[in-house]
Design a protein around this nucleic acid. Structure first.
Lengths: 150, 150
DNA sequence: AGCAAACAGGATAAAAATATCCGATTTGCT
DNA sequence: AGCAAATCGGATATTTTTATCCTGTTTGCT
């Protein structure tokens, strides 16, 4: 239901939230998130174009979040790479419907609205702070991603 | 967020709900739903394989719903062509997580769960019966799809 | 200046989703 | 039997998504 790209982007910003406000290299993120590095690079470029992350070239460079994890919502990340497009006019182009969606499309749009709302109300900070035995991206409890090359 | 195929399938069963328990030809459905006929044919084959619709070849044949619109949910239609797959184990394959999803994936899964729930609790009968000026698939209010070739 | 780290971006490839075409088969009707 | 209405299913094409590779550019360090 959500694209691979969305999944990869969320993992990446999750890693970056751990190291924020510092930066991580694409390789570090790729290792920690188990995303193919070359493809991750493209995803990160998309996030950079959308202003979610910024990149710094050269030695000591890498990728970092533009906002703090407290200010960054899941929705912003999702919309940066694969936007949730709400239904605003009849997909069949029926003029009589126009912006007045029929019950079918109203329900489909409501489903998207609920996802949008859930994602809008969750920040990255909440995701990484939530007490749990399953820490995002971490194989072992109570152990968080580091920048050490494994 | 939802595939074209899902959209097409929903339109098609919506048309069939109008003509239920009678059948419609693929061409009639294609015209009423504005879905390319050849592709719709494939979508309907998928719905038939999943047991949502049944087909009858030959003169006077066509496609009809297996269940009544009262018994058929949107979810069954969606799952027939492009299933909503819930996250049951860690997508990274982290053994420590297993079925205990991390906060990130729990939220993504919750979003899918809300969609699943919304779709599960809506029948086709509700969709076509809801009073509105925008009648599904119909260009004009108070005028419903017919089997008349336009 | 020279070198190594690191991202940028184009070219390419592979796979999946979307779409079209057409001959084969089934079926009802006369 | 013959014909026309319909679906079935295989082949093919197109577009999008996912993925890989490689060269170029930027940057910090010595």
């Amino acid at each position: 239901m959500f694209s691979q790209t969305v999944e990869y982007a969320l993992r990446a910003v999750c890693h970056l939230a751990y190291t924020a406000p510092g930066s991580s290299t694409t390789e570090e993120i790729a290792n920690s998130t188990k995303v193919p590095m070359a493809y991750l690079s493209k995803v990160l470029q998309g996030l950079a174009r959308a202003g979610v992350v910024k990149s710094q070239r050269g030695v000591g460079g890498g990728i970092s979040l533009v906002k703090s994890p407290e200010e960054l919502t899941i929705l912003e990340v999702v919309n940066a790479v694969d936007p949730i497009v709400r239904i605003t006019t009849c997909p069949l182009g029926l003029k009589a419907h126009g912006k007045n969606l029929c019950p079918l499309h109203k329900r489909v749009d409501n489903a998207m609205a609920s996802v949008e709302e859930a994602f809008k109300s969750t920040t990255l900070a909440e995701v990484i702070a939530e007490p749990t035995t399953s820490i995002p991206l971490c194989e072992f409890p109570a152990m968080r991603p580091t920048n050490d090359p494994e």
